[in-house]
């Protein structure tokens, strides 16, 4: 089961998901970065991920998901840019934070930039949770 941290997502317009996996962070890191493992849960990777390099994933050599490795701190933190066709060139970032906890690893995935900044200004994500009345209130706030 994954859990969406709704409050945080509303404030930052980032999608944040946390999951517990019953292995050490070093093992999770291998599954996030090694070509041999990535395809099992994500998309077939064209190569191992490596610090400072570009990456691409997709079946039969197709580039379905691609980006650049921005931060590389094994086995704690991995930050990548994330592009996918439907984003139409709008670049987003995906951050993985691995924290050792009793019996395993707390894995937090943060996907930032999925809603354009301008839309954030209009408090669109607020609307997702707070409902239309609150949304109208924030729009009135913009007008004043």
């Amino acid at each position: 089961m994954t859990e969406t941290l709704t409050r945080e997502a509303t404030e930052t317009a980032d999608l944040v998901k946390t999951i517990f996996i019953a292995v050490a962070p070093g093992t999770v890191w291998e599954y996030l970065t090694k070509q041999a493992h990535i395809g099992k849960w994500y998309q077939p990777a064209h190569a191992d991920l490596a610090p400072g390099s570009d990456y691409a994933m997709g079946k039969d050599g197709a580039r379905t998901i691609w980006g650049h490795i921005m931060e590389w701190h094994p086995p704690q933190r991995l930050v990548t840019t994330f592009n996918v066709g439907p984003l139409e060139g709008r670049e987003t970032t995906v951050t993985w934070d691995l924290v050792a906890v009793a019996g395993g690893t707390k894995v937090t995935m943060t996907h930032a930039g999925i809603v354009p900044e301008m839309a954030e200004e209009c408090a669109i994500l607020g609307h997702l949770d707070a409902g239309w009345d609150a949304h109208l209130a924030s729009l009135r706030g913009l007008a004043s």
């Binding site: 089961m1 994954t2 969406t4 999608l15 998901k17 999951i19 517990f20 996996i21 292995v23 093992t27 999770v28 599954y31 493992h37 099992k40 849960w41 994500y42 894995v107 995935m109 996907h111 999925i114 809603v115 839309a119 669109i124 994500l125 609307h127 997702l128 949304h135």
Partner: peptide
């Protein structure tokens, strides 16, 4: 704003599935 809501929900579902699979596989 429904289209925007749907778009975010779509990405949410994508990651839910990928993370569940990651946990299961590992």
């Amino acid at each position: 704003l429904q289209a925007v809501t749907d778009w975010v929900a779509q990405i949410d579902l994508f990651w839910s599935r990928r993370l569940d699979t990651l946990k299961d596989i590992i």
